[in-house]
C-alpha cells in the first residue's frame, strides 16, 4: 500500500514540473494549470487515504474533510468574484494563506514537542519553516492591502531599522538556540519567533512602493515554497520537498525576470527607494 502511495506522489511531482513547464509557454499554459491541479488533487487524495488507513480518529477526519470542503468552495467563490484588475492582490492573499499554514504547522508541532523531544536539526527545520511562513503571511497581507489601495506607502526610516533589528533578533535567536545557549524551551522559542516574524513581514513590505508589489508578491511566493520544502524535510515527505523547492527556485527566477522587465534591480526594489536616475539601470 505504501508503494502505491509513493508511486502516486511521484506522478504528482511530475505533474508539478510539467505544469510549470506548460505554464511558461503561451499555447499550453491552460493545460499546464489543469495538469498541476490534477496532480495536486491526486497528492492530497492519497495523503488523506493513507491517513485513513493509519487509524485517523473520527473527529480529526471530520475536521479535515470539513476544512477541505469549505476551503475549496470559498476559494472558488473568491476567485470567480474578483475583478480582473484585482487578481494580483488575490494571489497575494492566497499566498498569505499558504504562509499561515506553514506557520501553524510550526506552532502545532512545537506544542507537541513537549511530549516527545525531537532532534536538533528537526527543531531547526521547524523553526525555519515557521519564521518564513509567518513573515510571508503578514508580508503578503500588507502587499494585499497596498494593492487594494487600503494602505499607503510609508518610507519612514524607523520602519526599515526596526525591520532590520527584528531580522537580526530572529537569526540571533536561531543561532543561539542551535548552540544550546538559550535557556528556554522549544515551545517558548516558537512563540517568540512567530511574533518576531509576523512583525518582520509587516515591517519588511510596508516601506516598499506600491508599484513594486508584484515583484514582492513573487518573492514572498518563492519564500512560501521554501517554507513548504522545510516542512517537507521535517516529515521526510518527498512531494512537499520537491514542490516547495520547485516553487522556491522558479519563484526566485521569476522575481528576477519581473525586476528585469521593469528595469529595476531586486536590491533597489527591496530597499524601497526609487531609482533616481531611472535610465541608469
Amino acid at each position: 500500500m505504501a508503494a502505491f502511495i509513493d508511486a502516486g506522489y511521484f506522478v504528482a511531482t511530475l505533474t508539478f514540473v510539467g505544469g510549470l513547464k506548460f505554464l511558461s509557454s503561451p499555447a499550453k499554459a491552460k493545460s499546464g494549470n489543469i495538469l498541476a491541479a490534477i496532480g495536486m488533487t491526486l497528492a492530497v487524495g492519497l495523503t488523506f487515504y493513507s491517513a485513513l488507513t493509519n487509524a485517523l480518529p473520527a473527529i480529526n477526519m471530520m475536521i479535515i474533510l470539513g476544512a477541505i470542503g469549505i476551503g475549496t468552495v470559498v476559494g472558488k467563490l473568491m476567485s470567480s468574484r474578483v475583478e480582473m484588475t484585482g487578481m494580483p492582490q488575490l494571489v497575494s492573499l492566497f499566498n498569505a494563506m499558504g504562509g499561515g499554514c506553514a506557520m501553524l504547522l510550526g506552532i502545532i508541532e512545537g506544542q507537541q514537542v513537549g511530549v516527545s523531544s525531537l532532534p536538533l536539526n528537526v527543531q531547526l527545520l521547524l523553526a525555519g519553516g515557521l519564521v518564513i511562513g509567518a513573515a510571508s503571511l503578514t508580508g503578503s497581507m500588507v502587499a494585499y492591502f497596498k494593492l487594494a489601495g487600503k494602505l499607503k506607502d510609508n518610507r519612514n526610516r524607523a520602519l526599515i531599522y526596526m525591520a532590520r533589528t527584528s531580522l537580526v533578533l530572529i537569526l540571533g535567536l536561531l543561532i543561539a538556540f542551535s548552540f544550546g545557549l538559550l535557556p528556554m524551551s522549544f515551545v517558548n522559542l516558537i512563540y517568540i519567533l512567530a511574533f518576531l516574524s509576523l512583525l518582520y513581514g509587516v515591517l519588511f513590505v510596508w516601506p516598499i512602493g506600491g508599484a513594486d508589489m508584484p515583484v514582492v508578491i513573487s518573492l514572498l511566493n518563492s519564500l512560501t515554497g521554501v517554507a513548504t520544502a522545510l516542512a517537507g524535510l521535517v516529515y521526510a515527505n518527498k512531494i512537499m520537498i520537491a514542490g516547495g523547492i520547485f516553487v522556491g527556485a522558479a519563484g526566485l527566477l521569476l522575481t528576477l525576470l519581473m525586476c528585469k522587465a521593469m528595469n529595476r534591480s531586486l536590491l533597489k526594489v527591496l530597499a524601497g527607494t526609487f531609482a533616481k536616475g531611472k535610465g541608469a539601470a
Partner: peptide, 25 residues
C-alpha cells in the same frame, strides 16, 4: 505569462496542505 505563472506556482506551494493533514494524524 509572469502573473499567471506566479499564481500557478503559488497554488503548487499549497502542497503544504499535505503537511497539515499529516499533523492532524
Amino acid at each position: 505569462l509572469h502573473t499567471p505563472l506566479m499564481s500557478g506556482a503559488n497554488a503548487i506551494s499549497g502542497v503544504i496542505l499535505i503537511g497539515a493533514i499529516i499533523i492532524m494524524l
